[in-house]
Amino acid sequence: MTQRLNYIQQSPELFKKFLEFSNRMKEAAIEHSIVDLVQIRASQMNGCAFCVDMHVKEAKLHGERELRLHHVAIWRESTLFAPRERAALAWTEVLTRIPEAGVPDDLYERVRTQFSEKELSDLTFEVMAINGWNRANVAFRTVPGSSDKVFGLDKAGLQ
């Protein structure tokens, strides 16, 4: 894969603002383990190799088990995810590929049983953020692993 252009260099101020927005997510009401799953699943769905690579390594550094990382793509069939994680993954999927009829009421109600209104709002912003990053990195073909040293992801021990 060859990167098409470096959007960070071309639009440094916009990049900086979007990065600030994304970094604010660290203050959100959602636990890091769920954020990791959300970032991985949206990135898988969007075909963002750079982001899947990055977020799998981050999750590993955060202590996520390798088998669960492999099961994110098959989370519905897997027995490794708790109801709250399943709700977050379902919310991620519906917001990543919004159906023509919108978000179904039954899904919203199911997710609301697992998250407070504040948590659901924060989760929605997290999905928005990762989808934005996915779009930029897919559009410009950012090379997976190309920022590992910058982000300390080389410490994940995944090659």
Rank of each mutant, 00 (worst) to 15 (best):
S146H: 03
L19C: 04
E13S: 06
G132F: 07
L153I: 03
R97F: 15
L69H: 01
S22G: 12
M128V: 10
E100W: 05
K26L: 13
S146A: 15
E77K: 09
S78C: 09
A136V: 10
E117H: 13
K57Q: 09
I34P: 00
E66I: 09
A82G: 06
E66G: 06
R68G: 04
E117L: 12
A90W: 05
M54Q: 05
K26V: 07
L37Q: 00
V111F: 14
E20V: 12
S43M: 02
A59H: 02
D105K: 12
I74Y: 11
P144I: 14
K57D: 06
G145L: 12
S116N: 09
M45K: 04
R76M: 13
F151G: 01
H32W: 09
K149L: 14
Q114H: 08
I98W: 04
W91F: 15
W91E: 01
N131Q: 11
T142G: 06
Q10P: 03
G47I: 03
D148T: 02
G145M: 14
F115K: 00
K26Q: 13
L67K: 11
G47Y: 09
A129P: 06
K26Y: 13
R4C: 06
E64N: 02
R76V: 10
G63P: 00
R86K: 14
L61M: 07
N134D: 10
V56T: 06
H62M: 08
M25K: 03
D105W: 10
L19E: 03
W75N: 02
H32F: 11
C51I: 03
R65V: 12
F18S: 01
A73R: 14
I30W: 01
T92M: 13
L80A: 09
R135L: 15
D36A: 12
L158Y: 10
I130L: 12
V94N: 01
T79M: 11
L69R: 02
S22D: 02
K16D: 11
Q159M: 08
Q9G: 13
C51E: 05
A42F: 06
D122G: 13
W75G: 08
V35S: 07
V38D: 02
Q159R: 10
V72C: 11
Q44S: 07
V143D: 10
A156K: 00
A129Q: 00
V138S: 10
V127E: 01
D122H: 12
V127I: 15
P144Q: 14
R112S: 15
R68Y: 03
V52D: 04
A59G: 07
G102K: 02
V38Q: 02
G102D: 04
F18H: 01
W75I: 05
E93F: 08
I130A: 10
S78T: 02
V94T: 09
L80M: 05
A88S: 04
T96V: 08
E100R: 03
L107E: 00
R110I: 08
V127N: 00
A101I: 06
A136F: 15
N131V: 08
V103H: 04
K149Q: 09
I30F: 07
H70L: 09
A88T: 01
K60H: 11
Q159D: 07
D148Q: 02
V150S: 08
I8W: 12
R76T: 08
E126H: 09
A49E: 14
I98K: 04
A42W: 01
K118T: 15
E58F: 14
E66D: 13
E77L: 09
H62F: 11
D106W: 13
